[in-house]
Design a protein around this nucleic acid. Structure first.
Lengths: 221, 221
DNA sequence: AGCCTCCAGATTGGATCCAATATTGAATAT
DNA sequence: ATATTCAATATTGGATCCAATCTGGAGGCT
């Protein structure tokens, strides 16, 4: 990527830029779990001052990626296998609620948007574009959740997705997983068209369960 | 140091002081929904600089009490009656999970801690100490949730409690409500001692429903 | 040795100042 | 009159400096 493109893609504020960098550093394990976050060192590394760094850390604290103790600072929070399972269990609870509320409210326009999102998922899956597929998958699910008309619920779910973003990219790196996701989404769409909330919830539970199982296998090794 | 002791301690940083003030200002409606938050004016009013104010705003953004647009600033998010109901519905989902996981794991020590917390609730209720009762009530519930062994779930629940803190204080302002809370807590304790998760969940659902109903009546007027 | 006190260095918290961006309103052209 | 441009102002974003607090170790005491 050229420096010009890099420059264009850079977020409009330093804190948002640092936020993305920190997420990557934490989820890839470059910042080790439990270790303290030295603001001076990181600020210098990212070539910003400590002010935007601290605001980014405050956001990460809200997401649970770091812990905070007054006058002692921020510490990288472990995202262990147990944590991953816990996040998915919480998602199961919240997303079931969202889907059950959304299904009876789905309009033709909503379904059309979901199908467009699914088209993009399938295109990216076929092309093997991991990042694009992760983004399209996110659009698909969140589009559905938005239809529940519960903005705070959706906010929480979105935050939970954010905390496990890097793991999902790992999942999509495998071609078999990509195919599975495509077919699972198609089944979900069928249930949604039929306004069958029970089936949609069950399919989405299985959808998540597969992801957890696959990621568990990877993280164990 | 236990997290619950941390819960009661007043953190000695300006940002957390401002955080509490902002929460009150927003939930009491002094800062009107949708209106922009002028950092200079508020910082001067609270007698701090804009730095801790901005970090507090970042926390509130994570909780959904304010929205944020880069280079345009923060705006007060409405916490309407619908929002309040939504928060309580989400709490219902998450707290049921926490209780069901916690009940079979409760030790004699856990029950003793719950009883101590309840003693403090009753003392504060009898003395009419609203703030103290809100704090003790919080300790009671979070002590129970902590026993679930799901730290991320507890974090989410804690955040949901934070967003409606000011409303709970209103609730405890009424003597009848205080008495009701005391007796409801006693019933919950009985179910917990009997390791009866179904009953505990049902009682806590009713506990929340009463609070929502009472607050709805207040907020309508 | 074990424990406390206290000092120096390290680190975070906060205040002030400057830069970057958005908004407003007046002047201009159509 | 309406739309547009552009300068003036208001507001947010960020850098630097100073203050408050924590940490770790040297020294003294029982």
């Amino acid at each position: 990527m050229s420096p010009l493109e890099e420059e264009r893609r850079r977020p409009p504020t330093a804190q948002q830029f640092v936020l993305g960098e920190l997420r990557r550093a934490i989820t890839t394990g470059r910042l080790r779990p439990g270790s303290p976050i030295r603001q001076d060192a990181l600020a210098e590394e990212f070539d910003v001052s400590r002010v935007p760094l601290r605001e980014a850390l405050k956001t990460l604290h809200g997401e649970g990626l770091v812990t905070y103790q007054a006058h002692r600072g921020y510490f990288v929070e472990t995202l262990s296998l147990d944590d991953l399972r816990e996040v998915y269990r919480i998602r199961e609870l919240l997303e079931e609620e969202a889907v059950r509320r959304a299904v009876p409210r789905l309009t033709a326009g909503d379904l059309a948007r979901l199908e467009r999102a699914q088209d993009e998922v399938e295109r990216a899956a076929a092309a093997g574009e991991v990042q694009e597929m992760a983004a399209a998958n996110r659009v698909f699910h969140l589009t559905l959740f938005e239809c529940a008309g519960m903005p705070r619920l959706v906010r929480l779910i979105r935050t939970l997705w954010d905390t496990t973003d890097a793991y999902r990219s790992m999942y999509y790196g495998d071609g078999g997983n990509r195919e599975r996701v495509v077919s699972e989404h198609r089944a979900v769409l069928g249930a949604l068209r039929a306004a069958d909330a029970d089936t949609a919830v069950r399919l989405l539970d299985e959808h998540r369960a597969h992801a957890v199982a696959a990621l568990s296998a990877v993280l164990d090794g």
